[in-house]
């Protein structure tokens, strides 16, 4: 059983949903980002998504675009991201790590070599934003061979006829993009979620995470009541951004403030 499956099974026993915070690798620098990653499980992260900085994040809103630019400026590369995961794994063998990003840096690394090295570093799953199921054959084989889950995205535009195509080869969990739009903008209403979830449940037995537009503890709580996990990304990155100095460097406030926000979200998820 993969770390992701184990974690969801354990949470199910506890009768609660998962909180999945997101950070952009090397934002604003490698050391701060690694320190944040290491501190996240203690602050209530059940799984963690690491954004792999890309020069052209066309599905992301302004907050994550800026985070990606900071990460790249600080020297992020796929090699550095995997190194960061390996360092995290030195003292955390249980918290699932999912890399989220765009296809081209994976292509540049080489599909098979990337999957093997990512698994070796301790990565558990991949979310490739610009790789729909129709194009996923190029990573399906290498990911399966390496024991990585390829997590599929389902959108509000994914109709019932298409859901089996998307969920058919999904593993790990299914990521429901709750709005039509880029990251960190609008928030789905509880009515929208209530309408979407039964369709998803009918199409897959995998856990369902809700992402895009979850900002507050209340929204995170609502998401785990409707589904199995809440992903919070832009809201945490916006806080991180606020704590940076004029040159965009981390300050003593950076970690405490992001982690305090994460703890608040975790409480809401646990009490939901």
């Amino acid at each position: 059983m993969s770390r992701i499956a184990r974690r969801f099974a354990a949470l199910k026993k506890q009768g609660r949903g998962a909180l999945i915070p997101y950070l952009q690798a090397c934002d604003p620098d490698y050391d701060t980002s690694l320190a944040l990653l290491r501190a996240m499980p203690g602050a209530g992260a059940d799984l963690i998504e690491i954004g792999v900085p890309f020069s052209d994040p066309s599905a992301d809103g302004p907050t994550i675009q800026l985070a990606a630019r900071r990460g790249l400026k600080a020297g992020s590369s796929m090699v550095r991201v995997l190194e960061m995961v390996a360092r995290f794994r030195e003292d955390d063998g249980e918290t699932p790590i999912i890399l989220m990003g765009y296809l081209n840096p994976i292509e540049a690394y080489g599909h098979a070599r990337f999957c093997a090295d990512a698994a070796q570093a301790g990565v558990d799953g991949l979310i490739v934003v610009d790789m729909p199921p129709e194009e996923a054959d190029l990573l399906d084989g290498p990911a399966t061979a390496a024991g990585l889950d390829l997590i599929r995205l389902v959108a509000p535009t994914t109709d019932d006829a298409r859901l089996p195509v998307v969920c058919g080869r999904a593993s790990g969990f299914v990521y429901y993009v709750s709005i039509t739009g880029v990251t960190g903008t609008r928030t789905a209403s509880s009515d929208e979620l209530a309408a979407a979830l039964p369709r998803l449940r009918a199409a897959t037995d995998l856990p369902v995470a809700i992402g895009f537009g979850i900002r507050s503890p209340e929204q995170a709580g609502a998401a785990v009541r409707a589904a199995d996990a809440a992903v919070v990304a832009s809201a945490l990155i916006a806080t991180l951004e606020e704590t940076l100095d004029e040159q965009g460097r981390a300050t003593p406030e950076t970690l405490p403030r992001v982690l305090a926000q994460l703890s608040g979200l975790a409480r809401a998820v646990r009490n939901a």
Binding site: P132, R152, L153, T157, G181
Partner: peptide, 8 residues
């Protein structure tokens, strides 16, 4: 190579 939202 587009996001799932755009694929349909």
């Amino acid at each position: 190579f587009v996001a799932e939202t755009l694929m349909p």
